[in-house]
Design a protein around this nucleic acid. Structure first.
Lengths: 340, 340
DNA sequence: ATGAAAGCGCTAACAA
DNA sequence: TTGTTAGCGCTTTCAT
């Protein structure tokens, strides 16, 4: 990269000191108007830009936020990212972004890299593997070192920091209630994310809804499918029970797969089988039939997280207790559930 | 943020000079094994991490790449981003990412921010508005200042730098040929991206295919729909011509919208109307019928761009002429086109 | 084997 | 009004 012009270069050109140049460019009153304009003009002509690295070293802040996201192909995370980006750029922060790819090891490496990088704070959602391992010492250390951190969606109780989460329990509760109220007699739940904190909470919400309607909870109807199991096979077995007429899917891919399957099985949707699903992406919207979804307001979550972090960074002197913001979900009714 | 331990702190603790500590931690032979081990142990105990900002200032490199992407919700760009991330993290580079949101102004602001930030290089795909305005002076300046840059997908001829593009012309050509060979007599083209360089190239490819099969080009069949026009209205008018039996959509949303429309119009797909579309995302795969797609291999594009940039960064001393890599597309046949 | 000093680019307190 | 100096955290050359 071509050497950029520095204060020193400008100073040399005019035979003045570096300090004079610095002050002149800052429009300081202690510099004569004459010198000021000379210097400014020269600086502009030569595209002078202060060296941010030097300023960072001086100020001990970098106006940079590290963002760790499990998977950017996931609509929800992409939306959150947009939200973070929106606020960050508005407040003059840059984003150093890392994709953990759901891997514990990559997450640890990433955090290490980020800590090296002297950034002002971190926004993170845990990798799936990290939630399975339940090992968050890398983050605990980060926190201990005083790095401001905000977690979102996939959080850990062991970490004492600001958090932004969705009311997963309530979201599942409302969706299940909706299925029941629309006439479903037997609602099953399909989860491929039982590893995740949010997955567990959603199951709770489902159970709560059944209880509300005095429907006995049948563990058999809570279908947890692991990564290495064949989705269709497991589902066919459970759907052998023809009295199942409602399905709560805990994330997009489950709903998509289920839909393909039951269409092949010539189910009538929503009459014979109603489906509701977490995460509101384009996919659910455009399938036929379109699938009723629980929107988690990803962009808003990202914006909230970014605001919380920046607030903490810029007000470190007045420490506040950690806060957990809970974002309400909303149910978007589509063709896969019955009107009532 | 809690103050981190520095070389100075360690030096003070042992009453040695900063230089000694620095050397000790680097395992220099000029330091006695005794002092070395003492210092190293202490450093580890106190989680000493070198201050990267200081090192950057010294080395004049930051191991950081700026990535400017028009829209992260777009599957293609998300895939490219994954590819960039993959190579970057493998080679020890961080990513500062910006979303231009298809806005010229945001892109200019972003580039400015990035240039301030003293990064090693930039990977960028132009915002739609930038391509419309055809104003790339902000990037020309950046290039003139010697910042290594790689463009991908939405590139500009005015910029002399490395590029990674898809063979849009050929992709459209093959898809159109496929439609014709499968028996379509009248293939129309639907574009909502006629603003973009890639959009124009795809139209060329379409025309070339018609020419190859001695089919006269009818401008009427090249449907360009602006952002402010009503998609369905325009399409209904064109589809009034019932002899149209093939459709080449230049990007995902056009295909999705068309599909909804023609299903309502009770077209039989692919018998009465075949559809092929650029960009291979989950959406096209899961629609019913699923839509034949031209895959652009986004992840590979990202990986290629990252490799090119890092190569240029790390070998600035031996300058090479700019290079444009062309990634081949591939056609993925699905239910929306006929077998033959 | 250890340290002093210069320098990366910049700011700011203090002198002149 | 301008300059000197010290310092942010680190590396490196050249003494000692």
């Amino acid at each position: 990269m071509k050497k950029r012009i520095t204060l020193k270069d400008i100073a040399k050109n005019f035979n003045v000191s570096i300090a004079t140049v610095s002050k002149a460019l800052k429009d300081s009153h202690e510099i004569s108007p004459n010198t000021k304009s000379k210097i400014k003009e020269y600086a502009k002509l030569h595209h002078y830009k202060p060296n941010v690295t030097a300023l960072n070293l001086l100020n001990k802040n970098t106006k940079t936020i590290g963002v760790v996201i499990p998977n950017i192909m996931n609509t929800f995370f992409a939306k959150v990212f947009m939200g973070i980006e929106h606020i960050a750029s508005q407040k003059g922060y840059q984003l150093v972004s890392c994709i953990s790819n759901e891997s514990y090891e990559k997450e640890v490496k990433t955090i290490d890299l980020l800590k090296h990088g002297h950034l002002d704070g971190i926004i993170i959602s845990l990798a799936e593997e990290t939630q399975v391992k339940q090992n968050v010492t890398h983050l605990k250390n980060t926190l201990n070192e005083g790095v401001p951190m905000v977690m979102f969606d996939r959080v850990s109780d062991e970490l004492e920091c600001d958090k932004v989460i969705v009311n997963d329990l309530e979201g599942a509760y409302h969706a299940t209630c909706h299925l029941i109220k629309s006439g479903c007699k037997k609602v099953a739940l399909v989860s491929v994310i039982d590893n995740l904190s949010v997955g567990k909470l959603r199951v709770e919400g489902y159970k709560k809804a059944l209880t509300t309607f005095n429907i006995p909870i049948e563990e058999r109807l809570i279908v947890r499918i692991g990564h290495h199991e064949d989705f269709d096979t497991v589902m066919k077995i459970i759907l052998a029970d023809k009295s199942i007429d409602g399905l709560l899917c805990l994330e997009e891919s489950a709903a998509v797969n289920v839909l393909h399957l039951v269409k092949r099985m010539t189910y009538k949707i929503p009459e014979e089988l109603s489906i509701a699903c977490f995460t509101n992406g384009k996919l659910l919207q455009h399938l036929s039939p379109s699938i009723s979804a629980i929107s988690q307001h990803g962009k808003y979550i990202g914006e909230t997280a970014a605001k919380m972090l920046i607030d903490r960074i810029e007000n470190e002197d007045l420490p506040k207790p950690c806060e957990t913001k809970i974002i309400k979900t909303s149910l978007i009714e589509r063709e896969s559930t019955k009107q009532f």
